[in-house]
Write a protein that binds this DNA or RNA. Structure first.
Length: 294
DNA sequence: CGTGGCCCCTGTGGGC
DNA sequence: TGCCCACAGGGGCCAC
């Protein structure tokens, strides 16, 4: 996504930013609680703050598109930043001038929440970029600057693509919680979600329920390198499309074909032939091989 | 302070 | 066909 958005946006101007659903955006001064909390009926009476199009980069020129973990930042040459998180069902689509967004799986196209119009520096239309998310677990953080962005990202762990055993050990510390719960914590490693946690634990031969503090040094090393290879392979395949995910050009990812345990509870383990166990860890469905992972 | 539980939301697929 | 339930790529808050 980052690469596709960078090639579509870097050097272009943001002509306008339109918000179709205010609760898919968090602006500075909004009450805490994340997406959807500020305007929901029956909640605290706090009104959302006024959201200017400038807070969503209108009038700026895109200098770079950066990513840390699951968060994607659009940064302008004058130092403004907006941050996108896909949640479970989010998409960011790039549409050529004159084209329409199809409704698509999960009715994503019927849930467009933010639309940016972009243009070449000479003014020729560059089409538009649309953030969609039916469930609205994702959203856009508006009104950031680069310092605010770095501050947010400093609270996250190292990005999963570059994690090492030493980083992992330092972040796990003496925690008694299940290693899978620790991996899902974005302050430990940024970017690990339910699919890749299970896949990496399988790759490393570590059971998801093991206490984080009980991992040996070599197990932490194996887990870090399993994370990196799982991420590399999934990126190479364009990501995991269970149903909703699409690249910015609308193509689904093909990494689901690489999953060795995720979504395969009850099936035979590809390594030992035993039955893959499906259970719950940290309130998330978890699949692992009780023979290969211990 | 660290943790588990609960909740936010919409869509889909299976059982009856 | 329709209704109800379970479940889904995430993460913030709150009570223990």
């Amino acid at each position: 996504m980052r690469r596709a958005l960078a090639s579509a946006l870097v050097g272009r101007r943001v002509v306008s930013a339109r918000v179709h659903r205010r609760d898919a955006v968090v602006a500075p001064g909004d009450p805490p609680g994340g997406f959807g909390r500020s305007t929901r009926a029956g909640r605290a009476p706090a009104r959302p703050t006024r959201l200017t199009s400038s807070a969503l980069l209108a009038g700026g020129q895109i200098r770079s598109v950066e990513r840390h973990g699951k968060q994607l930042a659009l940064i302008t040459t004058d130092g403004r930043a907006a941050l996108i998180h896909l949640g479970m069902t989010g998409q960011v689509r790039v549409l050529a001038p004159g084209t329409r967004l199809e409704v698509g799986p999960g009715r994503a196209g019927a849930h467009a929440h933010v639309t940016w119009r972009v243009a070449d520096p000479e003014g020729a239309s560059g089409g538009r970029v649309v953030f969609c998310d039916p469930r609205r677990f994702g959203g856009v953080w508006a009104g950031l600057d680069e310092a605010g962005l770095r501050e947010r990202w400093a609270r996250l762990g190292p990005d999963g693509l570059g994690v090492t055993g030493a980083m992992l050990r330092a972040r796990l510390g003496g925690s008694a919680r299940a290693i899978k719960a620790a991996l899902l914590d974005q302050a430990v490693v940024a970017g690990v979600g339910n699919i890749y946690a299970d896949e990496a634990l399988f790759g490393a031969g570590v059971a998801p329920t093991r206490a984080a503090r009980d991992l040996s040094e070599s197990e932490a090393d194996a887990l870090a390198s399993a994370l990196v290879s799982v991420f590399r392979a999934a990126l190479e395949a364009g990501g995991s499309t269970l149903r909703d995910y699409r690249a910015p050009d609308g193509t689904p990812g093909r990494a689901t074909g690489l999953h060795r345990v995720y979504g395969r509870g009850g099936e035979a383990c590809g390594a030992c032939g035993g039955v893959l166990t499906r259970t719950q860890v940290a309130q998330r469905t978890t699949v692992f091989c009780p023979v290969c992972q211990c």
